[in-house]
Amino acid sequence: MKKYILNSFLSIVFLVGISSCVKDHPAEPPVLNGDPTNITANTTIKALRTLSPKNYVNETVIITQNLIISAVVVGDDRSGNLYKQLAIQDSTGGIILLLGGTYIYTQYPVGRRLFVKLQGMILVNNYGIYSLASYIDNTNTPQGIPSDLFGRYIVPGAWGITIMPKVVSLSKLPNDSLQAELIEIDNVQVISANLTHPYYSLKYGAGITLESCAIPGKTAEIYSSKYANFANSVVPSGNGSVVALYLSDYYNIPQLTVRDTSEISLFGARPCD
């Protein structure tokens, strides 16, 4: 009797004790890289712009229809040059998407497709420069999507989509329809007055002027943020091509912004000095 009780108790205790293992953490999730199947675009960026055709200061239109665009990120905040915004582009055009978060590039980097559900968002039209905002704050400033609500408006898809820059002649700029698109301008150089300047400096201001060697007198401005990680780098001094995002124009001078200094290939001789 005694042995029976003892043995059965011991066996139960140890069977239970040994047979149970505590899982530390689960297996890695499967690699996902593709577009979601349950969402498709039903409009384009170009069509979106027609919702606010006139050019006013900060005209805002609340998008009430169930509109969805599919666009690829062409400019992100990795370098710090863009802040709380992305440049996204589809086959019809580009637009700035305002987002209330930092380090957005970790989830929506250049090359990732985003489906943006526009219902409830705000189309901001500032003299023909369009952006997508989430709300207008009490200082009348358009604000981006709060970081905890990204998922409500943005359905991300495939990573690593290569968008080739549109080769554009400086003579075709400014051109509002290229806004927020990735462009390449060939045969340009930094004007000699800006040669030793960094991309951003307090002393010289934010702009670097590019001049075209093909069309004398035609220029464009490169704007950089002081928070860009290349802000202190000195601009290259040669001739060549520049890949950048087209922003807008300022008194007819095209305004560009750089994604990464590796796309400023100005290393040739300066033929047009």
Binding site: G100, G101, T102, Y103, T106, S134, Y135, D137, N138, Q143, P146, S147, D148, L149, R152
Partner: peptide
């Protein structure tokens, strides 16, 4: 490293960080 705090209760990830009433309700 060079990324946003991913914790769900980080104050910038919380609904109260959003100033807009409607969006706050969504959040």
């Amino acid at each position: 490293n060079n990324a946003q705090d991913p914790l769900p209760d980080y104050y910038r990830n919380m609904p109260s960080y959003t100033r807009d009433t409607l969006l706050k309700a969504y959040a």
